[in-house]
Design a protein around this nucleic acid. Structure first.
Lengths: 153, 153
DNA sequence: ATAAAGCTTGCATACTTATTCAGGTCCGTT
DNA sequence: AACGGACCTGAATAAGTATGCAAGCTTTAT
């Protein structure tokens, strides 16, 4: 699925420097995603990446946010938020960690708060990471899969 | 002369969008500067330009002045980071808390993220405290001692 | 002055990225 | 079921960028 691939690309770029599309292609292949350079070129364009001396870079945080927010007037739904900013979810005991595009953590946390799920005790957001504290491991698992579903969409 | 040409390039870029080196070559020619694409490629590298969806862009906003300033571009290693900013580490269940000098939490967290250790689920940074979420208590112990080793150095 | 070393550049060419074209797939309609 | 349209993708290739090499210039040392 394309959306999933774009998310993985965002994540790879935030974690490791990528000098060329072919290098990115190889890194994606190791994660089980197999596409050609042509497809990546299109993805790069869609993500509005820029290529500088230190490799590819994601557009500035607020840019990403604006793209998602400019459409509607109502506050964006959590699903929309995750669709455009979410990268991956992991769970550890009673906590869920959501990685987002740079600058995406605050809005995602706000959207999660707005959701008001009973299992969530609270959220904390940095620049690109949201920490969700749940009542217990079971609740965390529930929250994790709910978020994962929205990402996978 | 090369220096003069670099200045003109900076000026042209701030005034008009440039999509390719060949386009830039034509624009320079109209100003009496005649060089080949190969030379421009070298100039672009020297100016540390980046190419995005809207053409070439100067680094750091768009200053025509401070070009010699940016030298050390590579992000410092985690070890260097901890050496200068780290204070102490403590663990609690599956979490590791790293205290840093004031203002040091963000960069330390970023360096930890870059490290990409599998045991780490995510990090969140405040002003002087980094919270590292690990998969479980055992992983946290592993991460703790690794960080402690870098500190102790 | 001559030699050696260091820059800067053009040419040709290797390498990287964008695009065209030709299928596929998935839906909704007829 | 067949059709039509909107996407998505790979293969091939065009377009764009980087680089090895050699030539010409300038500076420094002999």
């Amino acid at each position: 699925m394309k959306t999933e691939r774009l998310n993985v690309i965002r994540e790879v770029l935030t974690r490791t420097p990528v000098a060329s599309q072919d290098e990115l292609r190889r890194k994606l292949r190791r994660r089980g995603i197999h596409v050609t350079q042509a497809t990546l070129s299109r993805d790069m364009h869609e993500l509005r990446l820029s290529k500088g001396p230190s490799g590819y870079a994601l557009p500035n945080g607020n840019g990403v946010v604006m793209v998602a927010a400019a459409e509607d007037d109502a506050p964006p739904s959590l699903a929309e938020m995750l669709e455009s900013l979410g990268l991956r979810v992991r769970r550890a005991m009673n906590q869920v960690v959501v990685r987002t595009a740079m600058g995406g953590a605050q809005p995602v946390a706000a959207a999660l708060d707005r959701e008001g799920w009973a299992e969530m005790v609270g959220t904390i957001a940095g620049d690109d990471t949201v920490l969700v504290i749940c009542a217990d491991p079971k609740s965390a698992g529930e929250v994790e899969s709910r978020i994962r579903a929205m990402l996978g969409a």
